[in-house]
Structures are given as C-alpha cells and as structure tokens.
Amino acid sequence: MNKKDSHDSLLVMLKKNIALWGVVAFLALVVAPIGFNIAEPYLKISITIGTALFVALTVSYFTNKKTAATTNYEVTELINNKFPKFLQIEQIGLEKIIYENNMEAVGVDLSEPAELFIAMNDGKNFFTNNSRKLSERFKKENRKTTIILMSPESESEEILNTRNGKQEKGYYANKIKDATKDFKEFHKDSPETNLLEIRYFSFNVSMSVVATEDIAIVGLYRNSAGKSLTPPSFVFKNNGDTGEYSNILKDVKNLVKASEVHWASSDI
C-alpha cells in the first residue's frame, strides 16, 4: 500500500469513527435521558445537543457519501461525454438555436451595428417582424445596411412558386417588390451617413442570413412546402477565424459580389 492509499484509508476510518461518535452522542444525550425521565429543562437541552451532534457527525457522513457517489458519476459523465461536445460548440461559435425571425425577441438589436447584412429570398416577413428596429436603425448616423434578395425576374422565382404550390403568378416576385418598396420607404428620410443598398441575386438564397460585426444568424428552409414546421436558425458569435461566423461572413460578401445593385441611397 502506498502513502496515498494509506492516507486515504486512515481518512475513511477517521470519518467512520466520527460518525460512530454521533451515534454514541445520540444514545447518551437523547435516548438515555428520555429513558431515565430527566427533568426539564435539562432534558430539552440534552435532546437538542444530542440531536445536533447526531446530525452533524452521523447523518452528514452518510449524506456526503451518497452525494459523493452521485457527483463522481456526474463528473465522469461530463468529462467523457459532455465536455468534448461543449468545446466543439464553443470552437465553432454556436450560441443558440432559435425558431423565429424577430431579432429583438432573441436579443439581437438591429439598430446598433455599424454594418448589417440581410440575405433572403423575399425578405417580406423579416421586414414585417423587425420593422420597428429597422426604422430606428435608419434614423441613426453612420450605418450601412446591405440587403440581398432573389431577383423578381429570376427563373428561381418561378421554381419557388411551383414548388410551394402558389397559384398566383409572380407570387414571390410581388413579395420581393413589396419588401424593396418597404425598405426604401423606411429609409427615405435617413441621414446622409446612413446608407442602404438593395441588391438582387439571380438565384434563390439557400439559407437566410442576418450578419453584423458581432454575430451571424443562419436560417434554414424546410424541404416541404408550408409554414406549419418552423425551420431553425443558428446564432453564431464572432470568435475569430476559427469559428463558423467567419465562413458565413465570407459567404455573404461573395454573395454581394455575385449580385447586382438594384437601388442604393448613395446614388440619390
């Protein structure tokens, strides 16, 4: 037996002895006085002291032993199974998963970032759910907002209409035109240093993106038509070149290069 094992064995024995003294105290100060009908207030004092010692020395020993066994299992589970996943999530910068596109409701303030990128197929629903914060943003100095939408003239617009069972011809084209009009209307009285650029992409956007200098939110689209199954969106924080945020921002900037300017406030 090495020194550590010997020390641990002595420590265990000492704890057991202390627990045993708690039982002795309980018998001597609680059971015996009751049995001998000791008069008050001495009986009450004796019972209080005996009970306190029993709880402190004996009950706590068994409680700690049970807790230690449970805790050791939980720690082992965390180390072996949970921590690697936590570290991987932290490394890619994933903050949380959300199921709505109201940015204020999930703690994202669209009015504050100096630069904002929005890439979506039509953007109509996003504008409706975030119009208040977008209005605030367009009133502030030194802001740049770049919006990339699917072109209303794109062949992908017709494909989306057919795929999603839209009977109205040009359904998504009309939504894109409406969203464009809404953004321009909200921005018309903005300061000169508040820039808005609306770009059209020749194809549909495979993932919606809302990106600032601090975070990027990537939204998926369901494969089946309809809105009954709300798709998830993934919130990534900017943690440098190692995280997914960096890839998302590069992808968005490549999308900017691949799209054409439809309207820009700087041209007015």
Rank of each mutant, 00 (worst) to 15 (best):
L87R: 04
G93Y: 07
L149V: 04
M150T: 08
N125D: 11
P113R: 10
N125Y: 08
E112I: 15
F127M: 12
T71L: 00
F126Y: 02
D109R: 14
A105Q: 12
E77K: 15
E77L: 14
N101T: 12
E104V: 00
N72L: 09
I97F: 03
E136D: 12
T145H: 01
I89N: 10
Q91G: 13
E95D: 03
K140T: 03
T146Y: 05
E74W: 05
A119W: 00
I79W: 00
S135L: 08
N129G: 06
F117A: 10
E112P: 00
V108P: 00
M150Q: 04
M103T: 04
N102L: 11
S111W: 04
I147C: 06
A114E: 14
V106Q: 12
I118R: 07
F127I: 15
K140R: 15
V75I: 15
D122V: 09
N142M: 04
P113L: 10
S111A: 15
D109K: 14
A105C: 03
R132L: 11
K82Q: 04
F83C: 06
A114T: 14
L116Y: 07
K82F: 05
F138N: 02
L149Q: 04
T146Q: 07
K140C: 09
S135G: 08
F126P: 00
K82C: 03
R132I: 13
V75K: 10
A114N: 12
N81A: 13
I92H: 05
I92Q: 08
M103G: 04
V75W: 00
N102C: 13
A114I: 13
I97P: 00
L149Y: 04
T76H: 08
E104F: 10
A105L: 09
I147K: 04
V108W: 03
F127S: 07
L134R: 07
T145V: 10
G93A: 07
K82W: 01
A114S: 15
G123V: 01
R132D: 08
N129D: 00
Q88I: 11
L149I: 07
N142V: 03
Q91R: 15
I98T: 15
